[in-house]
Design a protein around this nucleic acid. Structure first.
Lengths: 207, 207
DNA sequence: ATGTCTATATGATTTAAGTCATATAGCAGC
DNA sequence: GCTGCTATATGACTTAAATCATATAGACAT
């Protein structure tokens, strides 16, 4: 059940004292620097202590596609550890960040000794598959308005199903998550406000 | 390490005798019928005994997006079981198929008693994330030629890295996996043959 | 107050892929 | 050997979103 909490109240996936107990170290990273690059071998488990990290692919002409954002308490870059393949995307700091780092062997050691945490990763990976499958379906066959609405509805559902939800992303970031261009997102969001599908409060999208 | 085998030699994810031991039943399904529909609650673990199943999303105008194909020995529809959410897509038989069906409680019982299998699912989910992330990046920012080449290269890498590989999908299926239209796939594949990027042998794509 | 940087905004133009129409080729069943 | 069905093929036309160009507005440091 950790997954629910993971989204809703941002609970840490592995408690900090356990990471430290198994030899984890805290490392600091400056804004706009990479924690690892696409193609690198996966050697560590990473968990955000503070700041914000994005997993991102760059196309030859410099366009970004954002696979996901990771904030306090969230882990990132585990699939290559479990599946034994190179990083398919780069981890870039959106802000100055502090990140726990645990070697692969110590991470697996921890999992073996803590079944309840191992189970959480199963749930976590499944929820990421749900997200990626959803975006994939949207990008493959739906127009901008539908893509954006699906994304922000999913975010609202995850973070604040009942209360009002302010989308914590810029138009550019929404574009990079939905395979659209900034201008298209800006135009579409304006149109959606006119149609009453969402509210814009001092440029922020509220739903 | 089961994942490697899973792709390369189609090893079954859970041995048949174990499924039966934990109360699994074999069910038969006719071509073009659904095993479960998008939106349904996830109650069972499924594993293919024979035939072929696709996980698919339909857009309002009837367009398909294929999230994945599953053949002998492969399991499908587990993420909603682990993550506790409704099926985000429907499972449709491409051929008459026989499928093992195991209730959720019995499946978790089996996992608890077989750690090595539990670990395999971690690896399996991670590889699916790799695939979806790859396709997502392709669809979001790359032209048809690049999308198709990335897909068939990945398939070749998974099934037959060294020997010649014949793509086991129709142009329509490739279109439905890459968010393109049949005509675009047909035209692009022809062009790619002219450019020497692949071979067409009696209409089948060979690489 | 001034300058810098980033985000949002909007119009004009282009273009790649989708859509529509139609043809042909291969295979399965009778 | 004919019929029907599915897959591949190809040309003509349309269109939605990308691209390009520019403007404005807000946040922040000096």
């Amino acid at each position: 059940m950790c997954g629910l909490f993971y989204y809703v109240i941002m609970q840490t996936i592995i408690p900090e004292h356990l990471i430290l107990e198994f030899g984890g170290k805290l490392s600091t990273h400056k804004k706009n620097t990479a924690i690892f690059d696409r193609g690198a071998k996966a050697l560590h488990y990473y968990q955000v202590k503070s700041g914000e990290i994005k997993m991102v692919n760059y196309s030859p002409d410099g366009q970004e596609f954002i696979q996901g954002f990771f904030r306090e308490g969230q882990s990132f870059g585990e699939p290559p550890l479990f599946g034994d393949f190179a990083y398919p995307a780069s981890a870039i700091c959106c802000q100055d960040s502090r990140v726990y780092k645990l070697t692969k062997v110590h991470f697996f050691d921890l999992l073996e000794k803590h079944f309840e945490i191992h189970k959480c990763f199963n749930e976590l990976l499944s929820q990421r598959l749900q997200y990626k499958g959803m975006i994939l379906n949207e990008i493959s066959s739906h127009p901008p308005e539908h893509r954006i609405l699906t994304l922000i509805s999913f975010l609202k559902q995850s973070f604040s199903p009942d209360a009002e939800f302010t989308v914590p992303y810029t138009r550019q970031q929404i574009a990079d998550m939905t395979g659209l261009r900034v201008e298209t997102v800006i135009r579409t969001v304006r149109k959606m406000e006119e149609e009453g599908q969402l509210t814009i409060r001092s440029h922020k999208i509220v739903i």
